[in-house]
Amino acid sequence: MMIDFLNAIVALSNFVLIPAIAYGSQLALGALGVTLVYGVLRFSNFAHGDTMAFGTMTVILFTWWFQSMGISIHPLPTALLALPFGIAVTALLLLGTDRVVYRFYRKQKAQPVIYLIVSLGVMFILNGLVRFIIGPGDQRFADGERFIMKARDFKAMTGLKEGLAIKTSQSITLVTAIIVVIALFWFLNRTRTGKSMRAFSDNEDLALLSGINPERVVIYTWLIVAALATIAGTLYGLDKSFKPFTYFQLLLPIFAAAIVGGLGSPLGAIAGGFVIAFSEVMITYAWKKVLTYLMPDSLDPSGLVQLIATEYKFAISFVILVIVLLFRPTGLFRGKAL
């Protein structure tokens, strides 16, 4: 009986908890980028998914280059070493886009909806650029040790029937996400520049009156967004794989996460990311295995006990989004300002 229970817990961790925590961290980092742009620049950035794709692509290119030169940080994936370079290139790209595209509309004080359409144009360009440079296909770029703990080793260690596998990419995701989030909150809450960003997001006129330079705030925002997008994209790519179209599709769960948490609220973005990830993984998981351990033998489920097929995982973010829009449009954390 006790063993069954332990097996159920292990199976649950292996197939639901660990993957959902990793995916949730990735979504949270993506949603943070969306929410920062919304809070400071005040528009929904539809190019964010493709910004993530661009950032990841540069990381992959640097990774390949390092690999060809024999540079490695085994057992960690080379991509971690390439990450700062990818962030730098993406930052340049975003600052360039702001300079060439968005700044004009800022000067005009354009409506958010115009920004949104402009971001569609930017999305097109980034999408084309990424496909042009690296192609539309799947790229795997994870090297180094694949597992921290293999299912087989776990079984041998514990004597349980169920194995627990922890992928390197999953633990790297969690550790990186924690570091990034701490750094971001430290920046926003403790530094003068971070506070000026929050002030600008809270009350633009009063920020101007206090002598805060809006262009400086905007530059810092794009720098942070570049870092967040590249890190989120790279972690997702390490964990699964890199395919430009998948990154475009991530737009929906990412926006759902940001809106569920409350657009403009960084804390909300993180909570939203985990809400979406856990719902997605739990609803598409086939619970047969876990239930078989928990239920008396006579009640063993005959089917897979999967609520919804994996193909419909987008429907889950969408349904959560709709429920939030219907019942609490400001999101869990009452967004609007950083």
Partner: peptide
């Protein structure tokens, strides 16, 4: 669902429903 809210929300909601429709048809 989405009309009467901010224009961005309609955008996201329509993006979502179109992905779902295509997923169903697929």
């Amino acid at each position: 669902t989405a009309l009467g809210l901010r224009s961005d929300y309609l955008a996201i909601a329509t993006l979502g429903i179109s992905e779902i429709i295509v997923a169903v048809l697929k």
